[in-house]
Nucleic acid binder design. Sequence first.
DNA 1: TGACGAAGTTTCGTGTGCGGAATATCCGCG
DNA 2: CGCGGATATTCCGCACACGAAACTTCGTCA
Lengths: 164, 164
Amino acid sequence: MRSATERETEERDATPREGADVDRILETLVYLYTESRRVTKEVARQHGLTGPQVTAIKVLENFGALSLTDLSARMSSTNSTMTGIADRMERDGLVERIRSETDRRVVQIALTEKGRALAAQIPVASMALFADALRSLDERDRRDLTRILRKLTDEVTELLRKNE
Amino acid sequence: MRSATERETEERDATPREGADVDRILETLVYLYTESRRVTKEVARQHGLTGPQVTAIKVLENFGALSLTDLSARMSSTNSTMTGIADRMERDGLVERIRSETDRRVVQIALTEKGRALAAQIPVASMALFADALRSLDERDRRDLTRILRKLTDEVTELLRKNE
DNA sequence: TGACGAAGTTTCGTGTGCGGAATATCCGCG
DNA sequence: CGCGGATATTCCGCACACGAAACTTCGTCA
């Protein structure tokens, strides 16, 4: 398969054709992730929020006020995206921006009373559907999954480091 | 932790505190998924495309012309989203819309010559980073992961069916 | 034939999501 | 002090992403 040019590094890929199960795994993950996000959004909407807003509100509830950079890192988002989310949450009176005294570049995002009250009403942080499904796994499966995900994370980190 | 109000339905959560590993797994999955999407987008950009456009082009290469509904289903997207993606790809001469003769409601999305040529140049369908990481797993881990994901999918399907 | 509900697509409004540029501030070094 | 590189946030333009509404066409049933 592939093509004729195979000069690249091929440390792995011992048996060809094995891409089939990789494709299957990917397709399944995309399905699970997409469907979970859809449900999360639906649940959030019942509280007048969006998906990312629920995530933000729960993160802030757990960790207290965070700088915009820390908050976006926690959410695997980017600063420019987080700015918009914070804007809309500030507009709706859920959070407030507090300029740091010690470092005036930094903006702390803090829950307002209204935000805190709303956070208390929402039981799950995010991806409720996925979390429910995970809870249905037995102890052994969950350990295996954790182990495999750690390997994947290490490999991804390695690949990212290598390419930049 | 949490708070004192615990009156809610607690069918599960037999042992409290076990939500910790679920949270960890979720966080890891979100990280892996997000980072992979970022890299995919980066790779796509080197061909003048976006992430979803690469996915679409490879799906169409594999399955031939598809109706907009079928294409969006394959991509775990929605019709309204797919309309926009198709618009931009049509604008760039990668695909063309062909009205079905038998059912004039249906629009077939088909690759143009330019689109087909571009598809041939792109080796991986999508989520290249994730796929690379998956390939680094040994046989046993991959089997375990497949097994666990199947359980998760069944559970998610069940939960979705139950709630609607 | 005509009404009518169902199915396929598009349109609209809003909210992410991202990279790159612009801005403001911090820090160390001379 | 003043300069330049690094860091934090915002701004801009574009591409998703989704639900609801509008529009066209289809199938059916009276």
